[in-house]
């Protein structure tokens, strides 16, 4: 048989609250926690739409995976809509994923040194990928040429009509 335990917890309006639990004196770190919590819940539903559409157009329509090649990427990024789409998807997914993995690191690492090492590795990887991905989207050149000025093989067909 379980014994009913009476636990006394002061009601919030009792005025006995330790100042560290009062909102007005919230430190900047708790605002940051709140921002991350909110960011996850706002970016999540947006990512659902962005990623489901991304997967549907690239894997379900037309020939699916067989249609994936340089020409498909070139065709998509010829449109500013897909450039912005992929850029927003990259940034939101990477920030959402970095916050998530950082939370997991905080939960499972016990020593400070281990935690810091994992998080430094995480942040370096994330920054590298976001910068690289952003540069790729904005500096993409569909009709690349070799040193002699000839179009590279496998260039999309529209390059040869110029």
């Amino acid at each position: 048989m379980t014994t009913q335990q009476q636990i006394n917890i002061a009601a919030p309006r009792s005025g006995d609250i330790d100042p560290k639990y009062i909102r007005q004196s919230a430190s900047s770190s708790s605002n940051w926690e709140m921002f991350k919590w909110l960011f996850m819940r706002i970016s999540g539903p947006i990512l659902l739409v962005l990623i489901f559409t991304h997967l549907f157009t690239n894997l379900m329509l037309g020939d699916g995976v067989h249609g994936l090649n340089f020409g498909l990427v070139a065709g998509k990024w010829a449109s500013p809509l897909w450039q912005i789409w992929d850029l927003v998807m990259l940034w939101l997914a990477m920030i959402h994923g970095t916050i998530g993995v950082a939370t997991i690191i905080d939960d499972y690492t016990k020593k400070d040194r281990t935690r810091v090492a994992f998080k430094v590795a995480l942040y370096l990887a994330s920054i590298t990928i976001v910068v690289l991905g952003t540069l790729v989207i904005f500096t993409f050149e569909p009709c690349m040429t070799d040193a002699a000025g000839n179009l590279l093989d496998n260039s999309p067909s529209f390059c040869f009509n110029q």
Binding site: F70, A74, G100, V101, L132, G133, V136, T139, M144, N154
Partner: peptide, 29 residues
């Protein structure tokens, strides 16, 4: 979440091959 994040890192790297050459990208894809 962790599985998707790890894939995302690789996915941006393989897509970045479009800046190397059409052959490099098509070969990996």
């Amino acid at each position: 979440g962790v599985v998707i994040f790890l894939f995302l890192l690789v996915h941006v790297l393989d897509t970045a091959l479009v800046r190397v050459s059409p052959e490099a990208y098509d070969a990996v894809i």
